[in-house]
Amino acid sequence: MSDQPANLREQALEEAALWFASLQDEQVSEQERQAWQKWLAESVWHREAWAKVEQIDREFHQLPTQRSFQALQSAGRSRRQFLYGLAGAAVALPFAWHQRDILQAAWTPGTLHQTAVGERRQLALADGSQLWLNTNTLITVDERAARRQLFLLHGELYLQSAPETQALRINTDYGSVDMMNTELNIRLGNNSAHLAVTTGEARVQLAQDTTPVTVAKKESLAFNQTRSVLTEGISANDEAWRKGYLVAENMRLEDFLKALGRYHSQGWLKCSDAVANLRLIGHYPIADTRKVLDTLAQSLPVKVRHITPWFTLIEDNRNISHS
């Protein structure tokens, strides 16, 4: 039913995934099974979504474990990406997007550097500048050109330029960032980039706009190819990841899991609606996401269930029910 609204299709797929998770529990009640049958009978969209969830589960079980993990690693962790994966391309598209990035890197000048999901690396450039790569990041570095350039193709980096060095440019699909005697963090999203300047200033040139934007110390800029939004202040997480932490400042559990999911190499993290608005405060080590999940189970009224090798569900441990 290709003409159905995308948001309704997405909602049906999410509900199907949650029902699938609940029915894997050995303690699932007969009332829950009846509620699932009622949900299934309510709409043809529900039945189509359920069939697709079962199909993806079969496909992941047919893949060797390492390949199934790699498929999810390459896909990214956004809710929309995963749900569209459930719609029939969860196995094929991740490899296609990963190959696209690698192919783009092959045609981009410079030396290739990359990190896997959950991995972070620190590099030193020829002039002494320090470069950190966050999880699941792909860049090339070209220091032979008249203007030194980095190409950020995927992920996130933090760059601390050495003093008294020539200007350096960071290129992205959304535009370029020129910097000198500057520290900054830049992260690519699905449809935009986010820049945070810690020290000094940077100048951003959007890909389809001739007017440059100057970003000063402790300012942030969200931008795509045609528009930008400048704000005062930077997020603690623009710097904390270099030290190995994810900072939660009264963060919703659902938002926290999306952020943590970037470092989780063992599939998709999801919470039920009943616990999505629980709040977290603290510093959480990103090197061991399993340990973080265990901490959540100890500090919040939630239960962590590893449904399959690629799906972990966090839900209310006081009343696990869809009724």
Rank of each mutant, 00 (worst) to 15 (best):
Y158C: 12
F82E: 10
S228M: 05
A21V: 09
D173S: 13
V28P: 06
N136D: 13
P163M: 12
T210S: 15
A222V: 14
M179G: 08
S43P: 04
V215M: 02
L260I: 00
A51D: 09
E48C: 03
N277Y: 11
I314V: 09
T226N: 10
P163N: 07
R242I: 10
R33E: 11
K52A: 09
V247H: 11
S192E: 12
L230N: 03
G200T: 05
K258R: 14
I102R: 07
E315P: 03
G128A: 05
Q166G: 15
W132K: 05
H46G: 02
R187M: 07
A207R: 06
N185P: 10
R203S: 10
L269D: 08
A75R: 07
A207V: 04
N134A: 00
A146G: 09
D178I: 03
Q208H: 14
L195P: 01
F311E: 00
W310G: 02
L230A: 01
F60A: 04
Q37W: 11
D209C: 06
R100F: 13
I314Y: 01
S192T: 08
S220H: 09
G244N: 02
A17W: 10
R9E: 07
G128T: 02
Q298G: 08
G110Y: 01
T226S: 09
S78L: 02
T210L: 15
D3I: 15
L221Q: 08
G128I: 02
A87C: 14
L8S: 00
Q298I: 10
E32L: 06
H264R: 07
F151M: 09
E30Y: 12
G200I: 03
L13E: 00
I139T: 02
L206K: 05
A236N: 06
F223I: 04
A116F: 11
A49L: 12
N277S: 14
V141A: 05
N185F: 08
G282V: 03
R227W: 13
Q31Y: 12
D316F: 06
D316Y: 02
L168K: 05
A87T: 10
R169W: 12
Q205R: 12
P109K: 06
V91G: 06
A236H: 06
P301F: 05
D142G: 04
T211K: 13
A90P: 02
I281G: 10
Q34V: 07
Y284V: 08
K218P: 03
E249W: 08
L195V: 03
S68Q: 13
A96D: 10
R262T: 10
L153N: 04
